[in-house]
Amino acid sequence: MVDWDLAVNIGSRLAGRGPEVTPDQAAAVVAELRTAADRSTGLVRDFTGLVAADRSAPVLVVDRAGWVQANADAFSTMLGPVIEKLSEKKGPPNGLAQAVGSRVTGAEVGLLLGFLAGKVLGQFDPFHDPAGRLLLVAPNIVHVERELRADPQDFRLWVCLHEETHRVQFTAVPWLRDHLASEIAALAETVDPGAALEDGVRRVSEALRGGGGGSLLDALGSPEQKQILERVTGVMSLLEGHADVVMDGVGPQVIGSVAAIRKKFDQRRQGIGVLDRFLRRMLGLDAKMAQYRDGAKFVRGVVDKVGMAEFNAVWDGPANLPSKAEIADPDAWVSRVL
């Protein structure tokens, strides 16, 4: 159903190469990012109390094309059960329909990956066997540090603190990966491909005409789907907010210019230009930004009240994860869990 090779080809071409650097500069960036990632492990462990073994998941410093390939591989693995369920519901297509459909879908995925490949600084892929992998996108990190006029060494460590926190989350809390995978599988059970496609096209059309539209994720609108998405939203808000709290908590101890970096970076997160804001809205990236903000507020609210050690009860099992409503009400989570 998806021509992944075409997706990678289109995504890599659309992403471009990024800022110009010499071979020596590129080698220095790669070496420093690896060192910063290794250094971040102990800093995150000391601050959070989560124990994850050193180098339990590989660190890959990649260019934009490498990020596109890695995410196409991840999507292929993650969406396998979803595609299988959709095929069962719709029945096998004929040869021509499959060939054309897979290329159309591959082109759509490629456009998505190409847009995101120029935005992402780092990412932890929890579904890569056996223990996940950490991706650091070197050209994007260099581009943003230059744009913000940030101290390169400080900025690179700051980025690694956030992404290393995700590695620690998934490797110190091994049930988390299977829990997210099960939620994705449960969502696949609810999808009506025809209705989802029709609603998605309608929302894009409305947005292009200046109407409400909403994000493409809003096309999943049944009560059961909304329940699953609310649970996933709670988990992702927790993970992103926790990582932001860690980078802001550790940063002042080891990064001299962290206050200036945070201020400039938050301004940049708002998006640049009309097209960028439109694409962020359609792809649900505005909701992603809200996850950072709301999740960080939840983590700080709980930690300020009971301390980090008590907060870590959130990692004891799926029942202790905050709901979307509890993300907005830390006291409700404390009352229920603690």
Rank of each mutant, 00 (worst) to 15 (best):
G271W: 06
E240A: 11
W158N: 02
A186H: 06
V254Q: 01
A172Y: 01
F170A: 01
V204W: 06
D154G: 03
R177S: 08
E189N: 14
Q253I: 06
P223N: 07
G273Y: 15
G251M: 07
D286L: 04
E230V: 01
Q253K: 14
G213T: 08
Q225A: 03
L197P: 09
A207R: 12
A195H: 13
L275C: 11
K226P: 00
H242Y: 13
R269G: 10
S237L: 04
G241V: 04
H179E: 09
A259R: 12
L238I: 07
A186D: 13
G194V: 15
V201W: 14
D154A: 08
R280W: 08
G249I: 07
G221I: 01
E163F: 07
R281F: 08
L275W: 15
W175L: 09
A219C: 11
V173C: 09
V232T: 10
G241I: 03
K264E: 06
G194P: 10
F265W: 13
W158E: 03
L157S: 00
R269M: 13
S205P: 01
P193K: 09
G249C: 12
G256C: 09
G273F: 13
D154R: 04
V204D: 02
L229M: 08
R269P: 03
L279V: 15
V274I: 15
S205E: 15
E224V: 11
M236D: 11
R281K: 15
F265L: 14
A196K: 14
